[in-house]
Simulated scan of single mutants.
Amino acid sequence: MNSSRYNPGLKKSSLVQKENYRGLLSVMPVVLMELAACGYPIAVAIGRSFTNWDGLYKNDFIGLTNYIKILTGSEFRLLLRNSFVLLLSIPIQVFIGLVLAVILYEKIKGWKLFRMVYYLPSIISAVTVGYLFKILFSYTGPVNRILSLFLGSSFAFEWLGNGMTALLIILFCIVWSNIGWQVLIFFGGLSSIDTSVLESAMIDGAGWWQRLFHIILPILVRTIEYSFIMSMIYIFSGIFPLIETITRGGPGYETTTIDYMIYTKAFTNSRYGEACALAVILLIIILAITKLQMSAANKIADWEG
């Protein structure tokens, strides 16, 4: 006797398993392509990180020497400091992007035009944005000219010659160029909110900021989590064009980030083994921070629930 005919739970379980298998098979081609495109290079980099590879012939196994040299060196702490300073741009751009998205969601006058204006910096190439900021903040650039005009020539400042101000300029550049992307992400998240929820809150007397912090933010926890994770990955691995065009990592290593140092070690100093080791360390940092962010988002979502 077929027991599944008289056991709806068992039949439902088998249907769920079939759906899971179908889902797995549907994504398998993409997974295999990702493994071929990303998994193999990562495996090679891990292997090369234990050698003194020069990119050509020299490829002697040296164990953990590259990792010890990197982690005990003073420059690595400076690279971490620079990267974590630039991470401060994430809450700034997320907050501004969320506020602008809510304003556009409420369809203020000319909201379609503003949506295009906010997104425009996101479609300009990073190299163009970098050169734009380099020109703006050069010693003879528009910023110093305006300061000299209103405050006197003594207020002209070498913005890119000072490590901290140069780093802050890069941070400002990151925020400006990514606001449009943040607005787009949050505008999509807001579109999934039932308008009756916000209308009920308005009828009950909730102000604009109250609706933002007590209604919109809890609903968009997952969207905010996605925004933080993608922005963090971008900060650690995607700002090379900005560093190269604005400061080239200078003065000294004051604005050099981990991804820029990987490029320097590999293609300037031909120390490919160290570059691979630094890339592996960067991968571990990104995975660790991503895990922390996902855990924090899960706790917030559970608390709100």
Rank of each mutant, 00 (worst) to 15 (best):
residue 172 F to K: 03
residue 268 T to G: 06
residue 153 S to C: 06
residue 97 G to W: 00
residue 35 L to M: 14
residue 35 L to Y: 07
residue 233 I to H: 07
residue 150 F to W: 13
residue 60 D to T: 04
residue 256 T to F: 11
residue 126 A to F: 05
residue 165 T to G: 01
residue 32 L to W: 10
residue 193 I to N: 06
residue 124 I to D: 11
residue 27 V to G: 15
residue 14 S to W: 05
residue 95 F to W: 06
residue 191 S to V: 10
residue 65 T to L: 13
residue 28 M to R: 04
residue 76 F to R: 07
residue 96 I to T: 02
residue 88 L to H: 06
residue 63 G to A: 01
residue 31 V to G: 08
residue 243 I to D: 00
residue 37 A to Q: 02
residue 58 K to A: 10
residue 185 I to T: 05
residue 78 L to W: 05
residue 186 F to T: 01
residue 40 Y to G: 02
residue 144 N to D: 08
residue 149 L to D: 04
residue 288 A to S: 13
residue 110 G to Y: 04
residue 15 L to T: 02
residue 290 T to F: 04
residue 22 R to D: 05
residue 299 K to C: 09
residue 76 F to H: 06
residue 8 P to I: 00
residue 42 I to R: 05
residue 3 S to H: 13
residue 58 K to H: 07
residue 51 T to F: 02
residue 9 G to S: 12
residue 23 G to N: 09
residue 282 L to K: 01
residue 151 L to C: 08
residue 108 I to T: 04
residue 16 V to I: 12
residue 263 Y to C: 07
residue 94 V to L: 14
residue 145 R to Y: 11
residue 27 V to W: 04
residue 200 S to P: 09
residue 299 K to H: 10
residue 302 D to E: 10
residue 90 I to Q: 02
residue 92 I to K: 00
residue 111 W to G: 00
residue 184 L to Y: 09
residue 78 L to N: 06
residue 219 I to L: 05
residue 12 K to E: 11
residue 175 V to K: 12
residue 9 G to L: 09
residue 175 V to F: 12
residue 37 A to L: 14
residue 219 I to M: 05
residue 202 M to T: 15
residue 113 L to H: 11
residue 231 S to A: 15
residue 110 G to R: 10
residue 208 W to I: 00
residue 156 A to C: 09
residue 235 I to M: 06
residue 205 G to P: 00
residue 118 Y to Q: 02
residue 157 F to V: 06
residue 293 Q to N: 10
residue 217 L to M: 14
residue 76 F to Y: 11
residue 106 E to W: 07
residue 38 C to V: 14
residue 227 S to V: 05
residue 249 G to Y: 08
residue 134 K to Y: 11
residue 86 L to A: 01
residue 168 L to A: 02
residue 258 I to A: 05
residue 242 L to Q: 02
residue 194 D to A: 12
residue 38 C to A: 13
residue 253 Y to T: 09
residue 85 V to P: 01
residue 187 F to W: 07
residue 137 F to I: 03
residue 230 M to K: 06
residue 224 I to Q: 00
residue 150 F to N: 08
residue 48 R to H: 11
residue 302 D to S: 10
residue 286 I to C: 08
residue 60 D to C: 02
residue 82 N to F: 13
residue 243 I to C: 07
residue 56 L to T: 15
residue 200 S to C: 12
residue 174 I to G: 05
residue 259 D to N: 11
residue 217 L to T: 15
residue 200 S to A: 15
residue 152 G to R: 03
residue 290 T to G: 12
residue 153 S to V: 11
residue 1 M to D: 03
residue 251 P to F: 08
residue 301 A to M: 10
residue 275 A to K: 03
residue 184 L to M: 14
residue 50 F to S: 07
residue 210 Q to P: 03
residue 72 T to V: 10
residue 264 T to K: 15
residue 210 Q to F: 06
residue 218 P to W: 04
residue 218 P to Q: 09
residue 245 T to K: 13
residue 145 R to W: 08
residue 115 R to Q: 05
residue 40 Y to W: 15
residue 13 S to A: 14
residue 255 T to A: 03
residue 265 K to Q: 15
residue 239 I to W: 01
residue 125 S to W: 07
residue 58 K to S: 09
residue 136 L to E: 01
residue 265 K to P: 08
residue 182 Q to E: 09
residue 181 W to V: 15
